[in-house]
């Protein structure tokens, strides 16, 4: 078979081109550690990787949302526990003051204590986190409860508690509609009103009035306890969700790494193989290109 001189050179050139291209590709994989360096390397894998990256970014955001939610819930729990303690203190005080052995002077000073408690509860009900009132429904920019001169308390918030998103389809109310926490519900009187009346009864030295409040205080105690346990279960839900998200984060990161990252051992073996092939091609080229009949004539 006849081989043209040009063919020999062309073949050498073409083969070296092909091998250097592969060598450069193998080198890129090893040096970047990525299996996919351009869109065309693995388009299907790339689209999957993009989906996973977006999921990861969403998961991180949801984790951030959960943290916001947790700080709201923690603040609520803290405030309500204090309220509960105040109610418990008020009850103890009421029991003591309902005792006939106590005199008007003691009751008058207890009335002052009840007033302080009332103010304390209003202030707890106006708890804010980063400047947002947590018991105001969604009217988070203004104090939800105002104490009037006549000791009555007005609710300025609304009935839509502040919510955060903790999953693609689930939201959790982490703020509270203050009215449902502190206001009257069913047979239960407004908590502020109870304190207002307790104070009035103490001030007026009205023993039966004081006694009447003890049961109400119990009811309020239980009502707040329910609310605290609500918050606890929400907190629990957020923590479970957070754990799920963290697991998802790990699995997705692993999946992403499987798609995107190069198997370094494999990549280095490939690079070595390419190197050997390249050297072999160079040796063979240098032998063939030197041969010519001219040297023997």
């Amino acid at each position: 078979m006849r081989v043209a001189t040009r063919s020999i050179y062309e073949t050498v050139r073409f083969n070296l081109d092909v091998i250097t291209e592969r060598l450069s590709k193998a080198n890129k994989v090893v040096s970047s550690g990525k299996r996919i360096t351009t869109l065309s390397d693995d388009p299907v894998g790339l689209a999957q990787a993009l989906n996973i990256k977006s999921s990861l970014s969403n998961i991180e955001q949801l984790e951030r949302n959960i943290n916001v939610g947790k700080s709201w819930l923690a603040a609520s729990e803290n405030a309500l526990t204090h309220v509960q303690n105040l109610i418990s203190d008020a009850k103890a005080m009421s029991v003591q003051m309902a005792n006939v052995t106590e005199g008007a002077a003691e009751r008058a000073s207890a009335a002052q204590a009840a007033q302080n408690m009332l103010e304390e509860i209003v202030s707890l009900a106006n708890t804010e986190i980063n400047g947002r009132y947590i018991f105001a429904g969604s009217k988070t920019d203004g104090a939800p409860f105002t104490l009037e001169d006549d000791n009555s308390v007005i609710y300025n918030g609304n009935n839509e508690p502040f919510t955060v998103k903790i999953g693609r389809t689930s939201t959790v109310a982490v703020g509270s509609d203050g009215e449902s926490v502190f206001g009257s519900s069913g047979e239960l009187d407004d908590i502020f009103n109870t304190f207002k009346e307790l104070k009035a009864a103490l001030q007026n030295n009205d023993v039966s009035g004081i006694q009447g409040k003890i049961n109400q205080l119990d009811d309020h105690f239980n009502h707040i306890a329910t609310k605290i346990s609500d918050i606890g279960s929400k907190m629990n839900r957020l923590e479970i969700k957070e754990e799920i998200l963290q697991n998802l984060d790990i699995t997705n990161t692993e999946r992403l790494s499987k798609i995107e990252d190069a198997d370094i051992t494999d990549a280095i073996m490939k690079l070595k193989a390419m190197e050997t092939a390249y050297q072999a091609a160079l040796v063979s080229a240098s032998r063939v290109l030197q041969l010519s009949v001219v040297d023997y004539l």
Binding site: S40, D41, P43, V44, A47, L50
Partner: peptide, 14 residues
């Protein structure tokens, strides 16, 4: 849609 677009571009290029 965007991911599919990028993927399709990669497929065309390949």
């Amino acid at each position: 849609y965007y991911h599919a677009l990028v993927g399709s571009m990669g497929i065309t290029s390949a």
